[in-house]
Lab assay of single mutants.
Amino acid sequence: DEEIEKWIETLLKRNISLRVNGKDLEIGSEEFKEWVEKFIKEV
């Protein structure tokens, strides 16, 4: 979905790490990609 890709790009540009389930996810890491894929499937 384009919306999500733009959102991810924005996050990448800002180099933010997300806190997911109490863990810091490094943007661009494998864990982050897995989380994004799960997130996309749920939406």
Score class of each variant (00 low, 15 high):
residue 1 D to K: 13
residue 1 D to H: 13
residue 1 D to T: 12
residue 2 E to V: 11
residue 2 E to W: 13
residue 2 E to G: 10
residue 3 E to V: 10
residue 4 I to E: 02
residue 4 I to M: 07
residue 4 I to W: 13
residue 5 E to F: 14
residue 5 E to S: 09
residue 5 E to P: 07
residue 5 E to C: 15
residue 6 K to E: 07
residue 6 K to A: 09
residue 6 K to P: 02
residue 7 W to V: 02
residue 7 W to N: 00
residue 7 W to F: 08
residue 7 W to I: 05
residue 7 W to S: 01
residue 7 W to A: 02
residue 8 I to L: 12
residue 8 I to D: 00
residue 9 E to T: 09
residue 9 E to L: 13
residue 9 E to N: 06
residue 10 T to D: 08
residue 10 T to Q: 11
residue 11 L to F: 13
residue 11 L to M: 06
residue 11 L to S: 00
residue 11 L to E: 01
residue 11 L to G: 00
residue 11 L to R: 00
residue 11 L to H: 01
residue 12 L to S: 03
residue 12 L to T: 03
residue 13 K to R: 13
residue 14 R to D: 05
residue 14 R to A: 09
residue 14 R to W: 13
residue 14 R to V: 04
residue 15 N to G: 15
residue 15 N to P: 11
residue 16 I to R: 06
residue 16 I to L: 02
residue 16 I to F: 02
residue 17 S to G: 05
residue 18 L to A: 02
residue 18 L to P: 02
residue 18 L to S: 01
residue 19 R to E: 03
residue 19 R to M: 05
residue 20 V to D: 01
residue 20 V to M: 07
residue 20 V to Q: 04
residue 21 N to C: 15
residue 21 N to L: 11
residue 21 N to T: 02
residue 22 G to A: 02
residue 22 G to E: 05
residue 22 G to M: 08
residue 22 G to F: 06
residue 23 K to H: 08
residue 24 D to N: 10
residue 24 D to M: 13
residue 25 L to P: 02
residue 25 L to Q: 02
residue 25 L to I: 10
residue 25 L to S: 03
residue 25 L to A: 03
residue 26 E to G: 08
residue 26 E to Q: 10
residue 27 I to D: 02
residue 27 I to S: 03
residue 27 I to Y: 09
residue 28 G to W: 09
residue 28 G to V: 04
residue 29 S to P: 05
residue 29 S to A: 05
residue 30 E to R: 10
residue 32 F to A: 01
residue 32 F to N: 00
residue 33 K to L: 12
residue 33 K to R: 13
residue 34 E to H: 13
residue 34 E to R: 15
residue 35 W to L: 06
residue 35 W to M: 03
residue 35 W to I: 03
residue 35 W to E: 01
residue 36 V to Y: 07
residue 36 V to L: 14
residue 36 V to P: 00
residue 36 V to N: 00
residue 37 E to I: 15
residue 38 K to T: 08
residue 38 K to E: 05
residue 38 K to S: 06
residue 38 K to D: 04
residue 39 F to L: 10
residue 39 F to R: 05
residue 39 F to A: 03
residue 39 F to D: 00
residue 40 I to L: 12
residue 41 K to E: 03
residue 41 K to P: 00
residue 41 K to I: 05
residue 41 K to T: 06
residue 41 K to W: 06
residue 42 E to I: 13
residue 42 E to P: 04
residue 43 V to P: 04
residue 43 V to R: 11
